[in-house]
Every structure is written in structure tokens, then in C-alpha cells.
Amino acid sequence: MARVFIPAQIRDLTDGQEVVEVNGTTVREVIEGLESIHPGTRERLCRDGQLRPGLMIAVDSSVASSGLRTSINRDSEVHFLPAIGGG
């Protein structure tokens, strides 16, 4: 199962768990799985079916260029991080 690293500010929704193991083949499926286990998490990560503005996803430490459609492996790590740009 994918290991979803829960952002500190929404761990109140996961009973304080920092990492939650969830089934899914894409980030979107993982978020749905997370929502089914810990209701309210999807709302904090997504808006209108998309990742919330200002956030980015890292899968196995690489920025996910395909957003919620990004494929994940059984043992992938999924992180939700502040979006970064550059100068």
C-alpha cells in the first residue's frame, strides 16, 4: 500500500497519525482511500476535484507533473507540499 505522509495541520483528522497506508494506483485514488478512512482529509487537500491551489504533490520524492492522475506504486510515498516556483 502507498504511504501517505499527512501534513501536520490536518493530523487532527487522522488521529495524529503522520503516515497512513492507503490502496490506490493514482494519487486521486489514494486521496479517495484516505477520505474513506479519515473523513475530511480530501476537502483539505482538494477543491473542485483538483489539488488545492498552492499545493504540489511529490511521489517517491519527485514532483508529480501529472497532478492527481500521477501513477503510484504499491510502496510509493506520497507527500503534499507547498508549491514552489523559482526566480
Binding site: 505522509f5 511529490a58 520524492s61 519527485s62 510515498e77 507527500h79 507540499l81
Partner: peptide, 12 residues
Amino acid sequence: EGVRRVDGPVYS
């Protein structure tokens, strides 16, 4: 390589 950053991801 292999160190986990404080924000979560692991360095390649």
C-alpha cells in the same frame, strides 16, 4: 542521498 528532509521527501 537517502536523507529524509524535514518536509518529507527523501533526497536522491
